[in-house]
Structures are given as C-alpha cells and as structure tokens.
Design a protein around this nucleic acid. Sequence first.
DNA 1: AAAAAATTTGAAAATTTTGTGAAAATTTAT
DNA 2: ATAAATTTTCACAAAATTTTCAAATTTTTT
Lengths: 221, 221
Amino acid sequence: MKILIVDDEEKIRNVIKEYCLVENFEVEEKEDGKSALEALEKEKFDILVLDIMMPKMDGFALLENIPKEKRIPTIILSARGDEYDKLQGFELGIDDYITKPFSPKELIARIKALSKRTNHQDIYKLNTLEIDFLQHTLKIDNKLINLTPKEFEILSYLIENKNIAVSREQLLSKLWGYSYFGDDRTIDTHIKMLRNNLGKYRNHIITVRSIGYKFIENEEE
Amino acid sequence: MKILIVDDEEKIRNVIKEYCLVENFEVEEKEDGKSALEALEKEKFDILVLDIMMPKMDGFALLENIPKEKRIPTIILSARGDEYDKLQGFELGIDDYITKPFSPKELIARIKALSKRTNHQDIYKLNTLEIDFLQHTLKIDNKLINLTPKEFEILSYLIENKNIAVSREQLLSKLWGYSYFGDDRTIDTHIKMLRNNLGKYRNHIITVRSIGYKFIENEEE
DNA sequence: AAAAAATTTGAAAATTTTGTGAAAATTTAT
DNA sequence: ATAAATTTTCACAAAATTTTCAAATTTTTT
C-alpha cells in the first residue's frame, strides 16, 4: 500500500508518516500541490491524503488538476466544521473526510477502510491468467486450474502483495495463523505445487533467497 | 433504477443527484416530507435516500407516514455519531444508513448494494431448470421437483450468490439464523439431498474445499 | 574449488475435509 | 395421537490436502 501525503505542515506529515510506517504502508510526502502532481504523474499510489488549506495551490485546486485517469481514492484533511469545504470536496469526488485536529489512529483506520472498499478486487488478470477471488478459481488460457485451498491462499496473498518480497514468517502468520509450530519448509512444498499448477506462469513466483517469495507482474531481467 | 432523494439542503441534493446521473439512475428530489409523500404516491421508486434532520416533517415522521404497501428500500442520511437516530431508524425498517459527512461514492456503492439485495428476481431459469422464488417451486424439464423447505432455501441462497463461493458459516447465519449451535456438517447433508434432487443439474453445485459451496451457471471446462 | 547455506523436489505419511447412509430427533400434517 | 415428512446427528469410507523428510540441486560464501 502506497500513500501520498500532501500537507504544508511538516509536523503533520511526520506524524502521519510515522503511523503509516508502523502499518507497513509505503509513504511519500509532498508539501505543495505542484510537487504532488508531479509525484502522481510519475508513481502509482493507492491513496491520497490531502490537506485542503495550503498556500499557493489548495487541496481543491490540486484535485481539479489531477488528470481523470490518475485520480485515486482520497481522504481530505480540513479544518473543523467547515461545511463549505465538505461540499466542495464531495463534488470533486473525495472518498472520505476527517477534520483537524484528528487522531492519527483514526486516520489510519480510515485509510484502511478506504483501501478495503476501493481496492477490493474481485478479479485479478495478468494476460491469460485470471484469478476470481469470489469464485475461488484460477484460470489460465481460459482453462480452470484446480488449486488446493492452501495453494489458492498463498497465491492470493502473493498477488495482494505483488512485487513485494514476502517472508516465510509472514506467510505462516497470515495464512496459518498465530501459533504454527510446523516446519518452515512446508511453504516450499506448497510453492512447488503452486508453481507446477501455474504452468507457463510459474516464473512469476520468484524466490527471494533467505527471505521468501514474491509474485512479480512483469517478468524482469 | 429510480431514486427519490429527500433532503432539505439543496447542495446535498445536487451532489447526490450528480453522482446518480453518472450512474444512469433516474432521480427525483424533494426538499420536504410532504412533497416526498406526494411523489411516492404518484410514482414508483426503487430506492429512497432520506435525510433524517429536516424542518417540519423529519425523516422518521415521513417513514411512518408512508402507507405500508408503498414502502421501499431506504437509505438514511444522518448526522455523525447520532446513535439514537440509527436505532430508531432500524426499528422502522430502514435498510442502510450513512452518516454525514459522507462520500458520495460510498452512497452510490450502498445504493447499488441495496438494490442488489432487495431487487431480486422472482424467477430464475437455467436451460430447463426453473426456480420460482415466489411459488417456492423448482421445475426441471418442466417437471415439478419436490424440495424440502431447507433444500429450497439453500438452493435459493446459492443462486442469489451464483458464481460466488459461499461458506458454511454464511449459510448457517443467513438460513438458520444468528445463533445456531448445531453441526456444520448438517449443511453437507442438505447439499447431498439437494444434489440428488437436482438430477442432471447436480454438478452445478460445486464444493469449494475448506470453504463451502457455490452454484455455478456455466459448467466450465 | 570446496564448503556452507538455502532451496527444490519427490514420495510417503499424517491429517483434514467431504460424501454418504442410516438412525435419531424434531416438526408438521392427518 | 399417530403418521408422515423433515431436519439433524453421527460414524465410517473415500477423497483430497497438508506436512514431513531426506536426497538432489542451486546459490552464496570462504
């Protein structure tokens, strides 16, 4: 999860950033609209946290200037009780709204909630590979591939964290649950089966030595 | 889809309307309870979006004054944190509520969700399989199949959620009720009977291992 | 180049989950 | 009240999945 924070006050940015890092969110911070726009141009973010009151280009102006196809779920930070802000913001299609002063915990909660309701993909496609999370199915070349539950879980998790190395411990704790006392290497066996089942897509699962595995979207060098 | 919006604030109405139009919903707006009642009298709406706090006749009063046969799925707009509102509203049979300030995107999402769960069809057909949800009948090859009530409920639920894996817990909570302390496996037995009764359509009920079951529309390769 | 470390792999063992028939319990109809 | 129908429980078999383990392989380090 990658978050862009735009606020002119450094203190606020730092607080938010700190909390985000605890949650393992990737964070980029900008202090004005212009540099924020540049960042949005270059990188892909999941969520935008945006202060309304900023010198030069304010939050609304920024929103208006984001090209349509680059718009992302946005949480607005604004001064308390500013009804006018709210309405304006709504018209521009913001997704949530929190008034200053706010508790960083609440902001985090809202970020999570927002990402959950916007980034809930039902289907993931990569060329002819297609995962339907609702149906619990994997298709390759339009043919159903039968995955075991664990294989499906692992694949889902890797894809949720695509392009990110996921450790064995992480997999174990997320997919097996808190107290698992089995062999680390169990995962390897599942990965083996998973790779076999992925057929020609098998090398999208990369082993990251001494860490774990990652699912890559683009077969890189 | 036709929506009636009742709110005394013009700005809010406009925002909602705009978003609804993007979704191709038909919209009618009223600014008070009285004119809303008249509109409900005259036209047929699919969903009512209703502000609680209004001068003269408030939202609750409006709900109470809608004749029983004219009542429609309702989403309440209420001031944040007003717990009392929520409860009162629920007792009157509202279907969802959202607190102000709200994101219009979320409202749209809720409207869609609500319409999905209330506007269910009366009849479902798949080749020569035909379910009449009103009559509670199942026909295959034009022959009546006698299902027990539970079997019919399960089949209905699976079909309402066709192509989605449904967990045993979900089935239990939806079909048996909140607090059921029986055996999970009861469901399996019902599924067994259901499959037998479905005859040649038996393999439209797929078991999703470690989850539950799903009804698939297309027998996939 | 050898040793060490980490991963892959195949096969077997252990475990879990599901299908099914029959009986018991409960509800509904006669 | 009795019979019939429905629902639930249960246990065992069957099927599928998960785990273990050790040898083989690959990669990294010394």
